[in-house]
Design a protein around this nucleic acid. Structure first.
Length: 257
DNA sequence: CACTCGTGGAA
DNA sequence: TTTCCAAGAGT
C-alpha cells in the first residue's frame, strides 16, 4: 500500500530509497497513524505531490479506527480510504491479497492499446468503455489474474515503454496489432502540454520545501521570501498550503508541517 | 469532463 | 535546452 501511494505518478527509481526508510520507520498502519501527519509529509521528501503523504497517513488512521489496524482486503473498503482510487484499490487487492481484478494503470493501458487496438497510445482519459473491453483480458483464476496483473504492468514498464519500446525483445510482439501494423505513430493532437515553470504548483513546492527542510517552525516571512518572482503568488500559494493542511500556523507568525 | 496537484531524469 | 513523462486521485 505504501509503495502504491508513492508510485502514483512517481518513477520506481526515485521511490525505492524513500520507501525503505519509510517502512523501517512505520512498518504498520498503526505505527504511521500514531505519528504526526506532518512527519509523514516530511518523510515524503521530494517524491512530489505531498498530499499523497497526507492521505496515506489519513488512510492509516482509518485503517486503525475501522479495520483493526489491518489493511482491508475488499475493493470497496480499500476504495473508501483517502488517496485510494480505482487503480490503487485494485493493485492492493490483487498484489497484496491475490484477488482477481483489472489493474488498469498507465502501463497496462498502453500495452493493451498497442496489442489490441494497434494504437501507439491509449486515449487521454480512461472511459468505462475501455475498462469493459480490457476486463476480458483478466484470467478467470484469481492467482492467474494476480500474476497477469503484475506481468502486464511490468511488460509496460520495462519493454512496452512509452518512448522507445523494445519490440524486438517483446514476448508478445507476434500477437501485437501495433507491431503488425508497422508501429504507426500516434495520431491526433499532442497528448500533453503542461508548462511547470512559474506555476502555482512549482511555487507551492518551493514554499513547502523550505519548511520541510527546516528543523523547526519557520517564520512566515522566510517562507514567502523563497519565492520572489511574484509575491502575490507566494501569498496565495501559502494560503493554499495552509488550507490543504500541508502547512500549519505555529506560534509567532511561523508555519510548520 | 476539465483541471489541479510536485519532481527530476532521460530523450 | 526544452520536452516528455512516471504504478493517479480529488474536486
Amino acid at each position: 500500500m505504501v509503495s502504491e501511494f508513492m508510485l502514483q505518478q512517481t518513477p520506481v527509481a526515485r521511490v525505492l530509497p524513500v520507501w525503505s526508510v519509510w517502512m523501517e520507520r512505520w512498518p504498520t498502519p498503526s505505527a504511521l497513524a500514531a505519528d504526526e501527519p506532518g512527519e509523514a509529509v516530511r518523510a515524503w521528501g521530494r517524491l512530489g505531490y505531498p498530499r499523497r503523504a497526507q492521505r496515506l497517513h489519513a488512510a492509516a488512521t482509518v485503517i486503525v479506527a475501522e479495520h483493526g489496524g489491518q489493511v482491508p482486503a475488499s475493493l470497496d473498503a480499500l476504495r473508501a480510504l483517502p488517496g485510494v482510487g480505482e487503480y490503487t484499490a485494485a493493485a492492493i487487492a490483487s498484489f497484496g491479497y491475490g484477488q482477481r481484478h483489472l489493474v488498469l494503470d498507465t502501463n497496462v493501458r498502453r500495452v493493451l492499446a498497442r496489442i489490441e487496438d494497434g494504437c501507439e497510445f491509449p486515449p487521454t482519459h480512461l472511459t468505462q468503455g475501455e475498462r469493459d473491453r480490457r476486463q476480458v483480458w483478466v484470467p478467470d483464476d484469481p492467482a492467474q489474474a494476480a500474476a497477469w496483473a503484475v506481468a502486464s504492468m511490468e511488460l509496460g514498464a520495462l519493454v512496452c515503454t512509452a518512448r522507445t519500446p523494445a519490440c524486438p525483445s517483446c514476448p508478445v510482439r507476434e500477437s501485437c496489432a501495433w507491431f503488425a501494423a508497422g508501429r504507426p505513430a500516434h495520431e491526433g493532437p499532442p497528448r500533453r502540454g503542461q508548462t511547470y515553470a512559474g506555476t502555482d504548483r512549482q511555487c507551492r513546492g518551493v514554499l513547502l520545501g523550505v519548511v520541510r527542510d527546516a528543523a523547526g517552525p519557520v517564520p512566515e516571512e522566510a517562507v514567502l521570501a523563497a519565492w520572489t518572482s511574484d509575491p502575490a503568488q507566494a501569498t496565495r500559494a501559502l494560503e493554499g498550503l495552509l488550507a490543504d493542511g500541508l502547512l500549519r500556523k505555529g506560534a509567532q507568525a511561523t508555519v510548520t508541517l
